[in-house]
């Protein structure tokens, strides 16, 4: 069996002396893995960096086999981010989250295109807001979307400042006040098209999406998200 696609490299793991097991989010086949012979060698290593967009030619006897991959680099988003710590941290976190969330072979073109859009703005000043919105989109695509249209208690559409951790629905300031300690903060930038005005808003957004990622989408597999933790730490340090 053979297939051809393009995809973003999410993770690589050395296999033997010179081969790499590459996990990539493909455009039409979801997350796929394969063995790249010589991938850890000097010639190929640079093209197999996390976040790179590559063409993928997969060959294996059965679809469930690991299969062998040949790749060719199309885009290298990380190369432009070597001196951009926030962008690099967001790229690593997005790849780690995608790798942890998606089962192999489940088609999610929306997440592929979302990742492409995120990688296009990683060197912008608003990378934190873009990243949080990308995670919101991923949660929605996986069936854990947050409903921020109206207050779950009163139906109000104004002054939405909280999210219920149980339902994932917005709660207005007045209705949520008595439960302040138990509700998650809803940063204003998630209600509109704008960006976060302060790093504190980005941290609130990351805590919000992080809660639903860990408790619902990942179901206790959050130990694999060290890269995301470092992104949160970066924005927490700026508060």
């Amino acid at each position: 069996m053979e297939w051809h696609d393009k995809g973003y490299i999410l993770a690589t793991r050395k296999h033997g002396e010179s081969a790499l097991i590459v996990s990539a989010l493909t455009q039409t086949r979801g997350r796929q893995t394969g063995l790249v012979r010589g991938g850890a060698g000097r010639r190929k290593r640079g093209g197999l960096q996390v976040g790179n967009l590559v063409t993928l030619d997969w060959r294996g006897r059965l679809p469930e086999h690991l299969g062998s991959l040949t790749t060719e680099v199309l885009e290298t988003p990380a190369a432009a981010l070597m001196n951009c710590p926030d962008g690099l941290a967001a790229l690593s976190a997005a790849c780690a989250v995608t790798e942890a969330l998606l089962p192999e072979g489940e088609d999610h073109p929306a997440i592929f295109h979302g990742l492409a859009a995120l990688f296009g703005v990683l060197d912008d000043a608003d990378v934190g807001s873009a990243y949080v919105k990308w995670e919101m989109g991923v949660l929605g695509e996986l069936g854990f979307g947050l409903d921020l249209a109206a207050c779950a208690a009163t139906g109000e559409t104004e002054n939405l400042t909280y999210v219920s951790p149980k339902t994932g629905r917005a709660v207005s300031a007045a209705a949520g006040k008595p439960y302040h300690g138990r509700l998650l903060a809803l940063p204003a930038f998630l209600l509109g098209a704008g960006a976060a005005e302060t790093p504190a808003e980005v941290v609130d957004g990351l805590k919000l999406t992080g809660y639903f990622l860990e408790s619902h989408a990942l179901e206790g597999r959050a130990g694999r998200l060290a890269a995301r933790d470092r992104l949160v730490e970066r924005f927490q340090a700026k508060k």
Partner: peptide, 27 residues
Amino acid sequence: ATVDGQTTAHYIADRVAGLGKDVVVSG
């Protein structure tokens, strides 16, 4: 000059800056 290498470099740069010493960090 890899994603992991540069992520580590930025992490160390932040840690060194947090020490409050007058140290130039270059790459």
